[in-house]
């Protein structure tokens, strides 16, 4: 049975009358038009669909909309206007951490989630934090360097 589900996406209230087991991923991409959230596997393995729900990193492909009722969702589209995003973006560019780009939005959300909890991570912590976000192009090391670099250059932001 359809439910009224109300939540906030990137600062804006969204009301969906829909199937509560629908995937948050589809709601974001199809209903909200937020196509920066990618689908790479549809089963929680690749992290391309990563978003933050109430500040926590989740795989939106296995997250039903019933569970976002009353919560705040942050996608790359909401994050990209922030100063923290700018710092991460510059670090990713400088490290060469972007190739095909399909994992990039999810990867940034994983990085943001880490830095919120731990503004000064070490290399192992960065690897751990992005370990649910697969990347087939970069081999990860440039991404790890980028996140470490952002944590230094963005000191005080997180």
């Amino acid at each position: 049975m359809a439910m009224d589900i109300s939540f906030v996406v990137n600062g804006k209230r969204v009301n969906i009358y829909g199937n509560p087991t629908a995937r948050l991923l589809d709601a974001l991409r199809d209903y909200c038009g937020l196509t920066g959230v990618k689908e790479g596997c549809g089963e929680g393995e690749c992290g391309a669909c990563s978003v933050l729900v109430d500040g926590k990193l989740v795989n939106s492909c296995i997250y039903p909309i019933a569970k976002v009722e009353g919560k705040e969702v942050l996608t790359i589209e909401g994050f990209r206007g922030t100063e923290k995003y700018e710092v991460l973006k510059e670090s990713f560019e400088a490290a060469g951490a972007v190739q095909c780009g399909f994992c990039s939005p999810g990867m940034l959300m994983a990085a943001e989630s880490l830095l919120r909890e731990n503004p000064k991570p070490d290399e192992v912590q960065v690897r751990e934090a992005i370990s649910g976000n697969l990347c087939r192009c970069t081999g990860y090391n440039t991404i790890v360097e980028a996140v470490l670099d952002a944590s230094i250059r963005g000191e005080g932001l997180w």
Partner: peptide, 9 residues
């Protein structure tokens, strides 16, 4: 277990 995103769910 799993990955950070999944452990959050």
């Amino acid at each position: 277990m799993a990955s950070p995103g999944i452990r959050n769910i």
